[in-house]
Design a protein around this nucleic acid. Structure first.
Lengths: 221, 221
DNA sequence: TAGATTGTTAATCGATTAACAATC
DNA sequence: TAGATTGTTAATCGATTAACAATC
């Protein structure tokens, strides 16, 4: 259930959020047919310090070999397992506007084991249509759907006004996680995990950084 | 150019990334016609400690008043200024698939001063069409466009294979920042600021957390 | 004035980096 | 074996929290 009998529970979020990046870079190495890498080389690629890379990986087990480095394929697979990408997940998308549809069209998620069951929307024009064989359903059916079906991840792409109301209708026992794109913080039962993608927070951060740079440039003049 | 003559340059990214969240919660308070708040009350709402809130805000100046708290409207406006939301920004979207179009349709960004000039795509079916009066243009025109026009933010929504090539064509002098949705790390001249939204990293983090919870639950059995 | 709450310094906590013995 | 590089401990750095004097 876990790697090398180590529990995952004490891993800090800082480490966890670096794992997908390791995974991505290791995939790129594999695609380039590079099968061996040292923490030092990986550091140069990915931008973390070699020390941090070794620390991070050692949270989950000793994947490397002294004097040699890491086997890229093995490390890629192990990190995949740590991320749970060896499992499959049932998804539903709630709010099938452009953003919901964009996510529905990402076949790369499907390749990683994220299987989309349905898209829910209030727009009657959409109901009955399909994206890649996945049906659009009426949001009125949502409550019953999560009573009848196990859903690992509900992807919330509704306007912020509706997000909380929608989430309250999800069956707590059948829905394990929420991937939230609505610009609001959702209140959920403690067993449901929420991962937020707050686009405006990202854009405003960029705006801040552009402004900070501006200030610096003006100083130098 | 900066608030209270303090430079912004030494503010940590941890603080910066919390600013948009303060901004959002203060807006909600204003909408509820709450005009005064203490760090303690704000802490209960937003989930940061009162101490952290006071520390964060003091990076930029003393916005509060002892014994009273903070004036919500004033604080909202000041944080808006700090984030650069009192300015306007010219945007272009590169890659006008579902995701690019989703962003183009977010009128809330426009309300915050982010003005979309054009969407660029390779799909000939799109070229010449419009979203909210904003034209789709051929990506072949991109290079010339950024030579002729000042662009504050280029939003990259292309598949990852094309992202770096596209970015290399942007005129360094006229493009200040990149909001990158392509699942890759872009190499850019040092004057250009990149803010990444890596959706798959977010989804994989959620996957990890679901899995971690699973492990914990199994232990307790 | 008395109570409340900030601004700010000091203490603590956690994350990152450095160093090096272990070992392939 | 000698060289390379990990795994891991210790040192450093930075961020968060606690505490409290200042003051509205």
């Amino acid at each position: 259930m876990n790697v090398n009998n180590k529990s995952f529970a004490n891993i800090s979020m800082a480490v966890i959020r670096r794992l997908p990046k390791y995974h991505r870079y290791l995939k790129e190495l594999l695609d380039k047919e590079i099968y061996r890498i040292s923490s030092k080389e990986l550091s140069r690629l990915i931008g973390f310090t070699a020390s941090q890379i070794r620390q991070d990986l050692n949270c989950f087990g000793g994947f490397g070999q002294q004097g040699y480095g890491y086997n890229v394929e093995e490390l890629y697979n192990e990190i995949g397992k740590i991320l749970g990408l060896d499992k499959t997940y049932k998804l539903i998308i709630i709010g099938a506007g452009n953003l919901g549809q964009a996510i529905a069209n990402y076949t790369s998620f499907e390749k990683s084991g994220f299987e989309l069951l349905a898209l829910f929307d209030i727009n009657p024009k959409l109901i009955g249509m399909k994206i890649r064989d996945i049906p659009f359903r009426d949001v009125d059916e949502l409550e019953q759907f999560t009573l009848d079906n196990h859903v690992d991840i509900a992807v919330v792409c509704t306007p912020k006004e509706f997000a909380q109301g929608i989430v309250d209708k999800l069956n707590e026992k059948n829905v394990k996680g929420i991937w939230n794109f609505a610009p609001t913080d959702l209140k959920v039962p403690k067993d449901i995990i929420v991962e937020n993608v707050h686009l405006s927070e990202s854009l405003f951060t960029l705006s801040y950084l552009l402004n900070e740079r501006e200030i610096e440039n003006n100083k130098q003049e």
